[in-house]
């Protein structure tokens, strides 16, 4: 089973600081990481490969340094690395990005595409579903468990109050959530191979025969009008003590605020 995993290199937002004057992210000195949900996607692809054979290709769109995210995926065990890197891709919104990734996926060939639920820098969760639409694939989102049987994929799809069991024919596209697995660590040998033995294949817009009207800024129907940091919420308060004590404190506080009478 040949699987494509889409990965994004993102700033480590656990480390991110906001410039209080401009309200924008301070990117300087912030390390880049593989988007956390994407690591779960890589892990799930590797598990499926170990069980059913085939190959795992990791795919990303971004500047040359995004190659580091692909190499990390490779050190975990992914077979091939493909980076879509072209100035013509710059300024893409999720629609143009998902078109571009989809065109690359067509060129690679696949039985299954796995994406992380969402990236921590944009939080849109749109790339996976939009790719599925571009490629006219069945899609299962918010997946927490995956089984493949007889050319079909059976997933548990997490809902707020339970889960759905969804079956789809292959090829298909999944987006996975962090509950799906625990990503493995890259191995030392994998790191050596990723950096010293394997090559990243770089494709431009021409390589994937992308329609220039559908990529980059020109192919993006949405644009960012304004970005701002939301007002910081007041600090939460943690009540401590036995359950009884905590409940009494809580009720007193709620009464104090006239939430309950």
């Amino acid at each position: 089973m040949d699987i494509i995993v889409c990965v994004k290199q993102v700033p480590d937002t656990t480390d991110v600081k906001i410039d209080p004057k401009t309200g924008t992210l301070i990117r300087e000195g912030v390390p880049s990481i593989v988007n956390p949900d994407d690591k779960h996607a890589i892990e799930e692809a590797l598990r499926l490969k170990e069980k059913h054979g085939g190959k795992v290709t990791v795919l990303s769109m971004g500047p040359p340094q995004a190659g580091d995210a692909l190499r990390e995926a490779s050190a975990m065990g992914a077979d091939d690395m493909i980076l879509l890197c072209d100035r013509a891709f710059a300024g893409a919104d999720t629609w143009a990005t998902s078109y571009t990734l989809g065109e690359a996926a067509k060129k690679i060939g696949y039985d299954l595409i796995i994406c992380g639920r969402e990236a921590i820098d944009g939080d849109t969760a749109q790339i996976g579903p939009q790719m599925a639409e571009h490629l006219e694939l069945p899609q299962i989102t918010y997946v927490r468990k995956v089984d493949v049987d007889n050319g079909k994929i059976i997933c548990e799809r997490a809902l707020e109050d339970g889960y759905e069991r969804v079956e789809a024919n292959l090829p298909a596209l999944l987006t996975v959530i962090s509950d799906v697995n625990k990503p493995r660590y890259p191995s030392v040998r994998g790191i050596v191979e990723a950096y010293q033995e394997k090559e990243i294949t770089t494709w431009t817009a021409a390589d994937i025969q992308a329609d220039e009207k559908c990529i980059g800024l020109d192919g993006s129907p949405t644009s960012v009008k304004k970005s701002f940091a939301p007002e910081p919420k007041g600090e939460g308060e943690i009540l401590e003590g036995t359950t009884n004590e905590v409940c009494k404190q809580l009720v007193a506080k709620l009464m104090d605020k006239n939430v309950v009478r």
Partner: peptide, 27 residues
């Protein structure tokens, strides 16, 4: 051991990772 941290600088043909000694010191 499974991740390759127990024989970091040993060549691959002998079960190691073929890593450099600075990486070993860092680990």
């Amino acid at each position: 051991g499974e991740l390759g941290f127990m024989g970091m600088t040993v060549p691959k043909e002998y079960g190691g990772a073929g890593m450099d000694d600075v990486s070993y010191a860092i680990a």
